[in-house]
Amino acid sequence: SSRTRFTDYQLRVLQDFFDANAYPKDDEFEQLSNLLNLPTRVIVVWFQNARQKARK
């Protein structure tokens, strides 16, 4: 499967949200999905990866 290429804007929004809340609710994932024009699944995985990185 091909990797999603995030724009700088998408990454900034995701990172800002993550800094405020590492565990979004379903409706928040949906809002981010609509805002960033990305599939919810891609955003869910991004947050999983970000939490892994933050733990190191």
Rank of each mutant, 00 (worst) to 15 (best):
Y23K: 09
Q48P: 00
D8S: 09
R41C: 12
Q52P: 06
L32H: 01
V44G: 13
K53P: 06
L36M: 05
L14I: 09
Q52R: 09
D26G: 06
S1Q: 03
T4P: 08
F29C: 05
K25F: 05
R41A: 13
L38Q: 08
A22M: 14
F47Q: 00
F29N: 03
N34I: 10
N49M: 06
F47T: 03
K56T: 11
V44C: 13
R3E: 13
K56M: 11
F47S: 02
R3A: 15
N49T: 09
Y9N: 10
A54V: 12
D8E: 09
L14V: 04
R5N: 15
V13H: 08
N49Y: 04
K53G: 12
Y9L: 07
A20I: 04
P24V: 02
D26A: 06
D27R: 08
A20Q: 09
N21M: 04
P24E: 01
Q15T: 09
S1D: 14
L11T: 14
L32W: 03
L14H: 00
V45A: 12
F29L: 11
V42S: 14
Q48M: 07
Q10T: 02
V13F: 06
A22C: 08
K25M: 04
D19T: 13
R41W: 08
L11F: 05
S33D: 01
N37P: 01
Q52S: 12
E30M: 15
F29I: 14
L14W: 00
T7L: 05
D27E: 10
E28C: 03
I43Q: 02
F6A: 02
S33C: 03
N21G: 05
Q48K: 11
Q15L: 10
Q15C: 02
K56F: 10
E28Y: 01
P39G: 05
L14D: 01
R55E: 15
A22N: 12
R12K: 14
Y23D: 12
L11D: 09
P24C: 02
Y9M: 12
S1W: 00
D8G: 08
R41Y: 09
D27P: 04
L35S: 12
N34S: 13
K25H: 06
V42G: 11
S33W: 01
L35T: 14
L36Y: 01
A20N: 15
N37F: 06
N37M: 11
V13K: 12
W46Y: 10
F18E: 03
Q10R: 02
F29Q: 04
N37W: 03
N21E: 06
D26T: 13
R12W: 03
L36G: 00
F29H: 04
R5A: 15
R5I: 15
Q15V: 05
I43F: 01
K25D: 04
K25A: 10
D27W: 08
A22W: 11
Y23F: 14
A22D: 15
V45G: 14
R3P: 14
S1F: 05
R3Y: 15
F6S: 02
S33R: 11
A50D: 00
P39N: 08
L11W: 05
K25L: 09
T7R: 03
R55N: 07
K53C: 11
A20Y: 06
N37D: 11
V42C: 09
E28T: 06
S2K: 07
F47L: 02
S33H: 10
S2G: 12
Q48C: 07
T7C: 03
L11G: 08
V13Y: 12
D8T: 08
D16R: 11
L14G: 00
L32P: 00
V45K: 11
V13M: 15
K25E: 05
N49K: 12
E28W: 02
L11Q: 14
Q52H: 10
F18M: 05
V45E: 15
Y9G: 10
R3W: 14
K53R: 09
R51C: 08
V13N: 06
L38G: 01
I43R: 01
Q15M: 08
E30G: 05
D8N: 06
E30D: 07
W46Q: 00
N21P: 02
R5Q: 14
R12I: 05
F47K: 00
K56N: 14
K53V: 10
R55P: 13
E28F: 03
F17V: 09
L35M: 14
L38W: 01
L11C: 02
K25Q: 06
R51I: 12
A54L: 02
S33I: 00
R5L: 15
P24S: 02
D16G: 12
T40N: 11
A54K: 04
Q10K: 00
R12N: 13
F17M: 11
R51N: 15
D16H: 13
V13T: 09
T4H: 10
R12H: 13
L36N: 00
A20L: 07
F17H: 15
K25S: 09
Q48F: 06
F6C: 05
L11N: 12
N34C: 05
Q31S: 10
L35C: 08
D16C: 04
N37R: 11
W46C: 01
N37G: 11
K56I: 05
R51L: 09
L32E: 00
K56G: 11
D8K: 11
D26S: 07
E28A: 07
K53F: 12
F6V: 07
R41E: 13
R12G: 06
I43P: 02
I43N: 00
E28R: 04
I43L: 08
L38F: 03
L14Y: 00
Q31R: 12
R55Y: 10
S1T: 12
R5W: 15
L14K: 00
L35R: 14
N37Y: 05
L35N: 12
A50E: 10
S2I: 15
T4N: 15
K53W: 10
L32C: 02
D19C: 11
T4K: 02
Q52E: 12
L38S: 03
Q15R: 07
P24H: 00
D8R: 08
S1E: 15
T4V: 02
F47G: 02
Y9C: 07
D26P: 08
L11K: 08
R41I: 13
R41L: 10
F29W: 06
R55A: 08
Q10V: 01
T40Q: 07
F29D: 00
A50W: 04
V44I: 07
R3N: 15
R55H: 14
D26N: 08
S2D: 15
V13E: 06
N49S: 11
A50F: 08
L36P: 00
K25C: 07
N49L: 05
Y9A: 14
Q31W: 06
A20W: 05
F17A: 14
D27H: 08
D27V: 07
R12D: 13
A20H: 10
N21T: 12
R12E: 04
L32F: 03
Y23E: 14
V42L: 13
D8Y: 01
A50C: 11
N49A: 07
P24Q: 01
T40Y: 13
F47M: 11
D19S: 05
R55M: 07
D26C: 03
R5M: 15
L36H: 00
R5Y: 15
R41Q: 13
E28M: 05
L36C: 05
F17D: 01
Y9I: 04
Q52W: 07
W46D: 00
K53E: 14
W46G: 01
K53H: 13
T40I: 08
A20C: 04
V44S: 14
F18K: 03
T40W: 09
D8H: 06
N34R: 09
V45M: 09
Q48L: 05
Y23A: 07
N34G: 11
T7W: 02
F29A: 05
P39M: 01
F29G: 01
F18S: 05
N21L: 00
R12Y: 03
F29K: 04
Q15E: 13
N49H: 06
V44F: 08
K25G: 09
L14S: 01
D19W: 05
S1M: 06
P24K: 01
